[in-house]
Design a protein around this nucleic acid. Sequence first.
DNA 1: TTTATTTATGAAATTTAATTTCTTAATAGT
DNA 2: ACTATTAAGAAATTAAATTTCATAAATAAA
Lengths: 279, 279
Amino acid sequence: MKSILFSIHSQIASFSKSEQKVAQFILDHPQKVIGMNADALANKVGVSAATVVRLAKILSSDGFPGVKIQLSAETKVDDSLYTEVDPKDPLDVVKQKMEFRIGHTIEQTNLALSDKSVQSAAQLIAKADDVYAYGLGASSIVAADFQQKFIRVGKPVIQTMDTHLIATGIVKPETVLMLVSNTGETVESQKLAEVAKEHHVPVITITHSKKSSLAKKSDIILLHDDSEENEKLRTAATTSLMAQLYVVDLLYYSYLTLNFDSNATILKESRNVIQKHFK
Amino acid sequence: MKSILFSIHSQIASFSKSEQKVAQFILDHPQKVIGMNADALANKVGVSAATVVRLAKILSSDGFPGVKIQLSAETKVDDSLYTEVDPKDPLDVVKQKMEFRIGHTIEQTNLALSDKSVQSAAQLIAKADDVYAYGLGASSIVAADFQQKFIRVGKPVIQTMDTHLIATGIVKPETVLMLVSNTGETVESQKLAEVAKEHHVPVITITHSKKSSLAKKSDIILLHDDSEENEKLRTAATTSLMAQLYVVDLLYYSYLTLNFDSNATILKESRNVIQKHFK
DNA sequence: TTTATTTATGAAATTTAATTTCTTAATAGT
DNA sequence: ACTATTAAGAAATTAAATTTCATAAATAAA
């Protein structure tokens, strides 16, 4: 289905003068139009209802009500939901707010994250002999997810919180270091990045801040959204966690497609193993 | 603006018999309803148009057309996006598809998950002396997140993959066992549930299947969506993982609000510790 | 169990909104 | 300047939504 706003935009030159007035109003105030009837819109822009309806027929086979329905599908919901969760909120309100926030976070991450970085990161991992992953706190969960996903497609990842162990591992250049740090300021991660640099080991970092100290020490930055700037109580920041996991998932996907057939085979085999021996 | 589907879901019990027929049809086929008029919908479910309109008035101040408009806003139109990610898709298409899928998953989880269960689970945890958490594979990540969140608010959670250790821990009735299992068929989890039952330890389970063996052995079931039925390649099932993490987050929220002031104080203090000693 | 009262429901009437038709005005082409 | 074509509004029509009202079903009271 095509975007109706886009369709208006690209067709507007071909409309008649009165129709253009209507079309322009729809482009400027789609949200308002949703709440109007054809008559009201006609009055608002100073044309007749017939003109409004005629235009509507061009835009949608379902006439004016159809236009409103399509506008509603495209015009993003109002932002009243995009508020901080409050400790006084009942659970069903929290659910609504969270649903909205998570959607927003993923959307923002899609914008922030560069496809090229993901693909380069996937290639680095594919070429590497060993991959080390490190994250502290909530980021350790992301590092663990990274490990699980890649082991399943035959790419062993060492994930540990023992920084000394990682430091001793990343002395060969055939290695890759994956760091996960929301703020990009975790001291331990920075130290590991320095060690990696010394030994010409590429560093991939998942973070929300491209200006952070860690970002500056990284070869590839996988940027995710951080909508938690004004977090208060909702510390453990599930939306940030989800954004990071989402980045890992895209990276995993990108890796899979690099050599799809062979990776899919390994994946299938690793599933069979579980199925056969543990179920 | 509240979600109309959510609103129907939570109010449906209070509707009359005929209204319920209409409401259920809307829940099952929102997309179809958008293309119908009140009469057609009435005929489809075998009630009168008056009933349809009456229900519509309850759901939206703008009556039946208003309901259609709201459905359109929520029912993410583009079906082509709601498809399995394909290995041939370029990354930007994958991003779009994933954004949609994740949104859908959270939405479905909001519908599946009962507020009452979350609140009861939070209360059980609050009353317990010790909490044990167990999950295997991707579910271990969820269990780890659960542990992290609750430790930060002063409720120690023991999370380990050593089932024997957990089994020896859950012999006192002041204990709670949290199990995470997507399918609800993991053998180890079932064994732990049996041990718990023997010692009158309540079992809380996060799963997508309420009919699973594990669900039957649980005292509280926290149900999440699983849109991965027809997964092919996208095994590591990030959307399921996110749904589970989301459930944990709601549980955490619910726990926090039980005794908000004291929990917020502990949380603040635990943050200060990190800030002061590790940054 | 019977009776009263409330609630639920559909048929028909009404209202409102959308759409079409028809006429006139504006514009462009000869 | 005259004719053909297109544009646009007023009024008429049609379709949809909504309300009213009578009746049936369910529930409570006697």
